Simulated assay, not measured.
Amino acid sequence: MTGTSQLGDFLKARRSQLRPEDVGVATYGERRRVPGLRREELALLAGVSASYYTRMEQGQSPSASSEVLDAIAGALRLDESERRHLHVLADLGRRRPGYRRPAPEYVTEAAGQLLAAFAEVPAIVLGRRTDVLAWNPLGHALFAGHLDFGAPATAAGRPNMARLVFLDGHTRDLYADWPGKARAVVGNLRLVAGQHPGDAALYALVGELSSKSAEFAAMWADHRVKACAVARYTMRHPLVGTLTVLQQTLSSGPGPAVVVATTEPGSPSQAALTLLDQATDHGTVLAPSRPQKDQPI
């Protein structure tokens, strides 16, 4: 998928989601043939010509300035994550195609040290496609205790959190607000797709989820983007009952991220997490420090 096509699809999707009354555009009771705003209405709000904006949606004007992009972001009512995503897509449209094969992902030394530091807190290491590269015993018990603890040790056996959220019944039941969790997963994948347009494995994952889950396909078509840095979730764990956790994504730079789940001190949720910790079979975190030569991406 090219940067220009992603940019056009993003603009069209977000324009269709804005109602005229949301942005003060008068319709005078007329019958409208398109959902959301018309191109000329969005262009007027952004302060650009309708023909210029139309060319942007059609991928024929990849040289938009930062000022123009910010104006369009304002007209579309984009939040900060969405605004940055718009700039990323526009920048991709200015590049020549020709992407290198993505390097295999592995647990970096920095991510490994972070994981070790959270011995008493649920923690998992995720690659950019949400592949689980490693988890500590408590992270495994909280997020995917029904799976083999050693699954992340090989590239072929790694669980994928996006796949689990949409296709695994245990994970769906785990989140009290499953739609909210699902939208966060899709929004994050949208951000990654913009940053890595040549990642064939990522688009294979998107294709698989789109074909197997109508819910994923609908959310993907919305072009919503969301940076999953901090989020609060109520979880219904089959062993310890209901608990509320704060999931935080910690990045140590380029490479995988560490996701940790914490609870409010002294709360019933902390007590539930302690009980889960006591029930966990503490073993060694299984994850290769470097990818094996015969492991696929």
Rank of each mutant, 00 (worst) to 15 (best):
P102V: 14
E57M: 15
L7H: 08
G47A: 08
E82F: 07
L286G: 09
V240D: 11
A141I: 00
V240Q: 12
Y203T: 09
A201P: 01
L275H: 06
N188K: 08
R77Y: 06
E57A: 13
E57R: 12
H87A: 09
T249S: 15
D173G: 12
H223T: 00
R172V: 11
K212S: 15
R224K: 08
L44P: 04
T244A: 04
R32C: 02
D222W: 04
G8K: 12
P122R: 02
P254S: 15
R172P: 07
H85V: 03
L138D: 01
D148W: 12
V186R: 11
Q278C: 03
A229R: 14
L7G: 11
W178I: 10
T242G: 00
R172N: 11
R83W: 06
G157K: 03
F118T: 02
V121C: 07
V68Y: 08
S269G: 03
A229N: 14
A257W: 05
A217K: 09
R158F: 08
S66C: 01
T2G: 14
R84C: 02
Q278P: 00
A229G: 14
I124N: 03
R31D: 00
A204W: 12
L147S: 12
L167E: 14
Q58I: 02
D199I: 13
G98C: 12
L69F: 04
R19K: 15
L205G: 12
R96F: 00
A182C: 14
I297R: 07
D148Y: 09
Q295C: 08
L142W: 04
P238K: 09
L114K: 05
E21P: 01
F166T: 14
Y99N: 06
A153R: 09
P296K: 02
A193V: 09
